[in-house]
C-alpha cells in the first residue's frame, strides 16, 4: 500500500514540476506571433502546392502578414480568398481574376505530319533535349505529357497527341507552364475564351508544310478585331485577353481555324 501512495505522490510531483516548468518556459520563451498570420493562414486553401512561390501555405501566410507578399499572393484561392485576406490585412482587395492554363497548340496527329525520329524516354523534357523530332513542327506539343505529370488536379490530358486542359479542374497554379519545355502553355483569365491555339513562329508556307492547323500570320484576324486586341508578331497571332471583348469575329475569319473559343473538355 505504501509503495502505491509513494509512487502516486512522486509521479504527481514530477508531473507538477514538469507542468510548472512548461508554463514558465511558455512565458519566458514567448515569441510574438502576428495574429493576422494565423488568420491569413486559415483563409488559404492549405494544399501547400507552392504555386505562390513560397514553401507552402504557412510560409506565404507569414509573408502576407509581414507585408512582403500582396494579399492576392495565392493564385489558387482566387478572388474569394483574396477578399478574405484583404479584410484581415485591411487592404482593399486588388481584384484578380482566376486564371486557367491554355495549351497553345492544336497539332493533333490528324493535322500534323508525324514523321518524328525520336525514340527514347517518353517524356517531353527528355525529347526536347534530344534535339530529335517528335512531330514535324518545331514548336508544337510533344504529347508525352510532362504537364500531365505535374498537374496537381489531374486537369490535363493528352488527347490525340496534344495536351488539353480541363478548365473546370484547372486551379491556375502554373506548374504546367513551367514544366512544358516548348513553352506552349500560358495562363489566361477564366472568363475569356478566344485564344490562338498555335505557337509556330515560322512563316506561312513553312507552317503549312508541317501542320494544317497552324497560324500562318496572315493578319486577317487583326483587321477583323474592333478593339485591337489581337496582334501578329513573329508570324504568330496573339490575343490580348485584357482588351478582348470575345466577339469571335477573328475566329470566324481565320483561314486555318486556329483561333478558337476553348470549350470545356471532358476528361
Amino acid at each position: 500500500m505504501q509503495i502505491i501512495i509513494a509512487t502516486t505522490v512522486v509521479l504527481a510531483l514530477i508531473g507538477l514540476v514538469v507542468g510548472v516548468g512548461l508554463v514558465y518556459a511558455g512565458k519566458k520563451f514567448h515569441v510574438e506571433v502576428d495574429e493576422r498570420e494565423t488568420a491569413v493562414r486559415e483563409c488559404l486553401p492549405g494544399n501547400n502546392c507552392g504555386a505562390c512561390g513560397y514553401a507552402g501555405c504557412d510560409a506565404v501566410a507569414a509573408a502576407i502578414a509581414r507585408g512582403e507578399a500582396p494579399v492576392n499572393a495565392c493564385p489558387v484561392g482566387g478572388a474569394p480568398v483574396t477578399e478574405k485576406i484583404g479584410a484581415i490585412m485591411g487592404v482593399s482587395a486588388e481584384a484578380q481574376e482566376k486564371k486557367v492554363a491554355f495549351v497553345r497548340c492544336k497539332g493533333s496527329c490528324e493535322v500534323t505530319h508525324n514523321q518524328g525520329n525520336y525514340i527514347g524516354i517518353p517524356d517531353c523534357r527528355a525529347a526536347a533535349l534530344s534535339g530529335l523530332n517528335v512531330t514535324d513542327c518545331d514548336y508544337g506539343c510533344l504529347g508525352f505529357g510532362s504537364c500531365v505529370q505535374v498537374c496537381p488536379q489531374h486537369a490535363i490530358k493528352v488527347v490525340d497527341g496534344v495536351a488539353v486542359v480541363d478548365r473546370r479542374k484547372c486551379i491556375g497554379c502554373g506548374l504546367c507552364v513551367k514544366a512544358c519545355p516548348k513553352g506552349l502553355i500560358e495562363l489566361m483569365p477564366e472568363s475569356k475564351h478566344v485564344a490562338v491555339q498555335c505557337s509556330n513562329k515560322d512563316r506561312g508556307p513553312q507552317v503549312k508544310k508541317v501542320c494544317s492547323a497552324g497560324c500562318i500570320g496572315c493578319m486577317l484576324c487583326t483587321r477583323q478585331c474592333e478593339v485591337g486586341a489581337i496582334t501578329v508578331t513573329n508570324n504568330l497571332a496573339h490575343v490580348e485577353y485584357e482588351s478582348c471583348v470575345q466577339c469571335g469575329k477573328c475566329a470566324e475569319k481565320c483561314p486555318a481555324k486556329v483561333i478558337t473559343m476553348p470549350v470545356r473538355v471532358e476528361v
Binding site: G19, G21, L22, A25, K28, F29, V31
Partner: peptide, 14 residues
Amino acid sequence: AALVQIVEMFLKKT
C-alpha cells in the same frame, strides 16, 4: 514529451 516542448520553445526564442 515535456522536454521536447521546452526545447522547442527555447529554440524558437533563442
